[in-house]
């Protein structure tokens, strides 16, 4: 349980910080594709008998290498080519799953995640990745802010914007790789997206958005763990559901949606 709480903290922070890039730069689809590539890679690693993490890392790097330039061209909608890669990685994942000999417990663990059984290696990996992400976000905050605002403008100002952008994608792949075992390949992306999306609803300051997102990430994993412990529900799924509830609450209280309220007031005023 101690390991699970620690993994929840590290995974929650890493995923939700990465989520800020994904949400503010509209990279959801790209993120999902990378997550699935990592999942397929992990299964491939398991099938070939080396570590799932190594497989996940290699596959997510490959996905970044292919998807990054596709998204970069920006001349047409990159959804279709990314969608094709996405379905390819899904196909590969199921192929490797089928090829895996014996019982499929390991594959299912990678799919659903099992935060309660993380071992020390997983924890060390998560720790390293979380520290790297946190450090880079703090050190390069101003560059990240500029790239999120407008990549071309950032480039014109003299910031190595492309390097920053590719580092973001690379970090996304690394975080997914490190969290695969605890959160699971199918669920990981929700933990990336939901806390950041919730934070996005609440603030116009990027700094605060990072802080809120990380807090929501930790809250999701810890509350999820607690609930799954109390009610004996699957931990990964519970964590993801908690993060979704947090998002819904944030959206309900979002100042960015006040327009609607104002509209309602207007309507009721007109009625009277």
């Amino acid at each position: 349980m101690q390991n699970a709480i620690l993994a929840g903290l590290l995974g929650g922070v890493a995923c939700s910080l990465i989520g800020v890039f994904v949400v503010t730069m509209n990279l959801s689809f790209i993120g999902v594709a990378i997550a699935h590539a990592a999942f397929a890679g992990a299964l491939c690693g398991a099938w070939l008998g080396f570590s799932p993490q190594a497989g996940a890392f290699i596959f997510s790097l490959a996905a970044v290498a292919v998807i990054g330039p596709l998204a970069d061209r920006g001349e047409f909608n990159p959804d279709t080519p990314i969608g094709i890669i996405f379905s390819l990685t899904m196909g590969l994942a199921f192929l490797f799953m089928g090829l895996l000999p014996g019982p499929k417990t390991q594959a299912l663990e990678l799919l659903w995640g099992s935060i309660l059984t993380v071992n020390n290696f997983d924890l060390v990996l998560l720790f390293i990745v979380a520290v790297i992400v946190l450090t880079l976000v703090m050190l390069f905050f101003k560059e990240i802010q500029a790239v999120i605002f407008h990549r071309e403008a950032a480039l014109a100002v003299g910031i190595p914007a492309n390097l920053i952008f590719y580092s973001m994608l690379f970090l996304t792949g690394s975080v997914i790789t490190a969290s695969l075992r605890s959160i699971g390949g199918l669920l990981i992306f929700n933990l990336i997206l939901n806390p950041a999306a919730a934070a996005y609803q609440l603030t116009y300051s990027l700094r605060i958005m990072f802080i809120l997102s990380a807090s929501f990430g930790i809250l999701s994993t810890w509350l999820g763990l607690l609930i799954s412990y109390l009610f004996n529900t699957p931990s990964g799924a519970t964590i993801v559901l908690v993060s979704t509830v947090i998002f819904i609450i944030a959206a309900a209280f979002s100042p960015k949606r006040k327009v609607k309220k104002w509209k309602n007031e207007l309507e009721s005023a007109l009625k009277n």
Partner: peptide, 30 residues
């Protein structure tokens, strides 16, 4: 460089002062 006008997401978590400050980022360096 002042690029041709582009649509900015109204939810973008960056304010006007911060955008102007971005002009300093290049000279400041990493």
């Amino acid at each position: 460089y002042v690029p041709q006008i582009h649509n900015i997401d109204p939810r973008m978590p960056v304010n006007a002062g911060e955008v102007v400050m971005m002009g300093r980022y290049g000279r400041l360096g990493l």
